[in-house]
């Protein structure tokens, strides 16, 4: 597969603060690529530079042959953008919004009308098309927000955390829409801090943290970095000292790593059942009560934890 987007050493500084630190990656035509990272990792800044909203401090990105620094208008013609926050005119109806944004992408006349009808069908709002957006639920607004990004049939769709703050049903609908679009051949760059979404949607995932792209690959490639390990998550009382207990866990032979996340301790081990008794014993020795224990198979969360020592939700 050929690359439709190549990111080369892209950086963005705000004064002394560096939001994105010289990241490099590429996205193949027809794939869903997820940028996974916690809030403030640099996902939105990256998408803002790729969509030509912000000029990079250094580096460049080529989208379908157009440079974001040298030919931003060329880039804008081939991309669709679904911003994290709703960007709609709430006093216009869904149809009026779609018509206006379609006009901004150069559509007009009957082709515009036909395309608006198609998109309304695609986002499932044909019967509500004449209602003003301000009367919609959060999920419906999100769907219109996505519809705007699809109007001109972009080659690459940038979706910046499109499921933040919506109900599970709408979230499900959005994820299904993304998969449908991809089946139709659309390349998607999807940012999220939900591991499950990245796992469900992506052909490949880039893990970003503090502006650095710290890992990239398929889900299988990434979890192999953690190795054949399991993770124990122990929930303890707020009054107890998790750091001292984590240090004690590191003394257990089969424990590879023990980290504190708020009042949870994550223990990475080749075999959870082999260390379970020792872990409980160490806690009892210190009079610390364990409220619950979860055992997790290797996943992107574990990869992130392994690479950063922190949980994605931190």
């Amino acid at each position: 597969m050929t690359s439709i987007l190549q990111v080369q050493n892209l950086s963005k500084n705000y004064g002394e603060f560096t939001a994105v630190k010289g990241i490099t990656f590429d996205i193949k035509q027809g794939e869903i690529f997820s940028l996974l990272g916690p809030n403030g990792a640099g996902k939105t800044t990256t998408i803002s530079m790729l969509s030509t909203l912000y000029a990079p401090t250094s580096g460049d990105a080529i989208v379908d042959g157009h440079s974001v620094t040298k030919d931003p208008m060329g880039v804008r013609n081939v991309i669709g953008v679904v911003p994290q926050d709703l960007a709609l005119y709430e006093d216009l109806t869904a149809r009026e919004n779609l018509i206006f944004w379609g006009q901004m992408y150069g559509l007009s006349g009957q082709p515009l009308k036909n395309r608006v009808d198609e998109v309304l069908g695609q986002i499932g709002l044909m019967d509500k098309a004449k209602d003003r957006v301000k009367t919609y639920s959060g999920g419906m607004k999100r769907r219109v927000n996505i519809g705007v990004g699809l109007l001109h049939k972009p080659k690459v769709l940038f979706m910046d955390e499109p499921t933040v703050g919506i109900d599970p049903q709408s979230r499900r609908a959005i994820l299904d829409t993304v998969k449908d679009l991809n089946k139709q051949g659309m390349t998607v760059l999807y940012t999220t801090h939900y591991m499950e979404e990245a796992e469900e949607l992506s052909n490949r995932v880039g893990i970003i943290d503090h502006g650095d792209l710290i890992a990239i690959g398929t889900q299988k490639e990434l979890t192999q970095q953690v190795g054949e390990t399991e993770t124990l998550i122990l929930h303890i009382s707020e009054n107890d000292d998790p750091a001292a207990l984590a240090t004690a866990f590191k003394g257990i032979k089969e424990v590879l790593e023990a980290n504190v996340i708020n009042h949870e301790i994550s223990v990475i081990t080749p075999s959870a059942k082999d260390v379970l008794a020792s872990v409980v014993s160490k806690a009892n020795e210190r009079g610390i009560k364990i409220h619950s224990i979860d055992i997790r198979e290797p996943n992107l969360e574990a990869v992130f934890l392994h690479l950063t020592g922190r949980a994605l939700r931190d």
Binding site: L53, R76, V81
Partner: peptide, 14 residues
Amino acid sequence: TQGTLPRLLVTPTN
């Protein structure tokens, strides 16, 4: 602040 201006700026509109 509503985000529609940034969205306009990423359409092919100067």
